[in-house]
Every structure is written in C-alpha cells, then in structure tokens.
Computed example of a mutant assay.
Amino acid sequence: MTDWRIGHGYDLHRLSAGQGLCVGGVFIACEHAVVAHSDGDVALHALCDALLGAVALGDIGQHFPDSDARWADADSRSFLREVRRLIGEAGYAPGNVDLSVIAQVPRLAPHIDAMRARIAEDLALDIDRVSVKATTKEGVDAVGEKRAISAHAVVLVARAQRAD
C-alpha cells in the first residue's frame, strides 16, 4: 500500500501602499505591497505549511521564524525549496498541489501560468500537477476591502519510492 498524506495550509498578510508584491513566486507590479517579514508570498507560505503539515514537520513559523533576521525580506521560493528538501529527508515527495489565492487586488489571472511554472520547478513536479486558482471576496472583509490577501493550499504527498 502506498503511504499517502494530505496537508492543508493557510496564510494571510495585510496590504499597504507599495509598488508590487510576490504571489506564487511571481512579482506583480501594482500599487500594493504586503506587510511581512519576508517577501510575504501568501501562496508559497500556505503551500509550505501544507507540505510541512502533511509530513508532521510543524509549520513555516517554526522553520523560518519572523524573529530571525536571516529571513528578513527573504524570497519565499527559497522557503519552498527548503521545505521540499525537508519532506524528502522524511521520505516523502509531493504528488500534487492545489492553491487558491483570495485577493481583491492585484488581478491575478494574467499571472497564473507563471505561478504554476515556478511552483512546479521548485517542487520538481510536472506543471499538470500544480493548480493555482484566484478568486475575490466581492468587497467583503479585509481581503475584499483591499486591506489583505490570503491563500489556501492543499497537497498530496507520497512516500518516496526507494531503489532497492
């Protein structure tokens, strides 16, 4: 029997006036910025939590705490690659990724394919195993009022095949 595990992750960051933000490993030039210790990529942070959770390795805050100056302004793609290494050490590999990014701003649809490509590259997955979707909050709550951006991630991981 294959050892499959599912993980779920969530992240939310406040928005401020700025010149752009990173989502799904892609920089999007816009009139907003994320308030965060690292680059504040909500999609990759949620994805890291989902992967870590699937293998019971804690969460992103344990591995990359915002109290550690090393992670100030860090590229969240480096977090994702390190998480992939950690789950690999635990004997697992990602099978597929399903991400939902919730944002009133910026408009994400034109960037979805680039996000999928970056995530697939960082997780060594075929692009057809990475889904990224975007939706709005129809003006409701902090996200809908353009004061925040959030993301949910679901992943399936499997025990890595061993060459015997």
Rank of each mutant, 00 (worst) to 15 (best):
M1V: 03
M1C: 00
D3I: 11
D3T: 10
W4S: 09
H8N: 08
H13A: 04
L15A: 07
S16T: 08
Q19Y: 12
C22W: 04
C22Q: 03
C22N: 00
V23D: 01
G24V: 03
V34F: 02
A36V: 00
H37L: 02
S38C: 09
D39V: 06
D41R: 01
A43C: 13
G53E: 14
A54D: 08
S67Y: 11
R70N: 10
A74K: 04
D75I: 11
R77N: 06
R77I: 05
S78V: 13
R84T: 11
R85G: 11
R85K: 14
G91K: 10
N96Y: 08
D98K: 06
V101N: 06
P110C: 09
H111G: 10
I112V: 15
D113M: 15
M115C: 13
R116L: 05
A117H: 10
I119H: 12
A120P: 08
D122E: 12
L123N: 09
A124Y: 03
I127F: 05
D128I: 12
S131M: 11
V140K: 07
A142P: 00
V143L: 06
V143C: 11
E145V: 03
E145R: 02
E145G: 07
K146D: 01
K146N: 00
I149G: 03
A151S: 14
A153T: 13
V154K: 01
V154R: 07
V155D: 15
V155T: 13
V157H: 04
A158I: 10
R159C: 09
D164M: 15
